[in-house]
């Protein structure tokens, strides 16, 4: 898609992108990440505002997914990964020794690239997080929260008659919305999305994008995407990564209409990437 087309999308979508500046919910003063000796992220300083969607864009291997996975410490699972510098969420350094990843991830949920429902029933998929965190006290409360989460993920109407069937039996787009329902069921403040639509067809993608826009009211969303149109459509803020560096970030409109850096411009006009 051409640069002009993206620009037009932004302009037509205009109004909802004008959001008041707030205190950042996440701030990362000078973060470096290494895989063994190889530096994956170099001196990333980024503030992410609350109750908005920020998209992370950039060519493959630029470090945007690495950055995303640092925000709820999913990178802890990789032995050779090392994070230096602070990542602050609500002012708390999440890499401080007293932080436990269990509580952190309950507050910072994640949706993955490929839908990965558990091989359990639809109901149990959503109930899983509620159960492990002990968030509900009764069976009926659990059922209510599952229903609410499925409704918020826009899946309730499609599955309410077959909650006992395996989640793996749903279509790709439904599976991904099930994963979103599963994530929002535990009421995180922040939701990380790692190319959530890359395995989906355009219709399913559109459905998820709508959902993301609705979710903005209640969650801070950070989304990694390869599609610049998607970034333009769903996000208010955009950060452009290139070769492990944060090149440029700001309001989506501004990044796409008047990029400051030459590399950003090359990327969004399709010359690199």
């Amino acid at each position: 898609m051409s640069f002009q087309l993206i620009e037009r999308q932004i302009l037509t979508a205009g109004k909802k992108h004008d959001v008041p500046e707030q205190d950042p919910v996440i701030s990362t003063p000078n973060v470096d990440v290494y895989y063994a000796d190889k530096q994956a992220l170099d001196n990333i300083t980024l503030d992410i505002p609350a109750n908005a969607v920020m998209s992370l864009i950039g060519p493959s291997g630029c470090g945007k997914t690495t950055f995303l996975r640092c925000l709820n410490r999913m990178n802890d699972l990789i032995d050779i990964c090392r994070v230096e510098g602070d990542i602050k969420i609500d002012g708390q350094d999440i890499y401080a020794p007293e932080v436990n990843t269990v509580s952190l991830r309950a507050h910072v949920g994640i949706v993955f690239q490929r839908p990965n429902p558990f091989p359990k029933s639809i109901f149990e998929n959503v109930a899983y997080g509620l159960r492990i965190h002990g968030l509900t006290s009764s069976k009926s409360e659990l059922a209510d929260r599952v229903e609410e989460s499925l409704r918020r993920a826009g899946l309730w109407e499609e599955v309410n008659d077959r909650l006992d069937e395996p989640g793996t039996g749903l279509s790709g787009g439904q599976q991904q919305r099930l994963c979103i329902a599963r994530t929002i069921a535990v009421e995180p403040k922040i939701i990380l999305m790692d190319e959530p639509c890359s395995a989906l067809d355009p219709i399913a993608t559109a459905r998820i994008e709508e959902l993301i826009d609705e979710m903005r009211a209640n969650f801070t969303i950070i989304i990694v995407t390869h599609s610049m149109q998607q970034a333009a459509r769903v996000s208010q803020h955009t950060a452009f990564f290139h070769m492990g560096k944060l090149v440029e970030h700001g309001q989506t409109k501004q990044i796409f209409t008047s990029p400051q850096d030459e590399r950003t411009e090359s990327y969004i006009t399709g010359r690199i990437g």
């Binding site: 609500d90 708390q92 999440i94 932080v99 436990n100 509580s103 952190l104």
Partner: peptide, 8 residues
Amino acid sequence: MTDHFTKM
């Protein structure tokens, strides 16, 4: 407000 991740 930020003891979410540290509170035991």
